[in-house]
């Protein structure tokens, strides 16, 4: 019943599971980051530098503005692609 392909899939999934188990045992505890110097700088200075109470938005739009620019580009490309494909079907 089981083909060679099924055995290969089971072996592959077993290897992946073992690796994930080992990396899960080595993960650091929840809520205690390894390096927190950058986080502490943002927590201390975000209100004076950006004037925003919400630190996450100040990181997204001010400290890491280039990431948001890339995200906006991705969304624009996705919408342009969808409209290009479906405009032909619409007519």
């Amino acid at each position: 019943m089981l083909t060679k392909r099924d055995y290969a899939a089971v072996a592959f999934l077993t290897i992946i599971t073992v690796f994930l188990m080992f990396s899960m045992l080595l993960i650091h505890p929840f809520g205690s980051p390894n390096a927190s110097a950058m986080d502490q700088y943002i927590i201390d200075n975000t209100v004076e530098e950006t004037g925003a109470n919400n630190g996450v938005t100040s990181v997204v739009f001010d400290y890491r503005g280039f990431d948001t620019l890339g995200e906006a580009t991705v969304l624009f490309t996705a919408v342009a692609g969808v409209i290009m494909i479906f405009r032909r079907l619409k007519k």
Binding site: G51, A52, T57, S58, F61, D62
Partner: peptide, 12 residues
Amino acid sequence: TGGTLPLMNFAV
């Protein structure tokens, strides 16, 4: 408050 953050929020 917020400077350019609300303007960028509106645009996005």
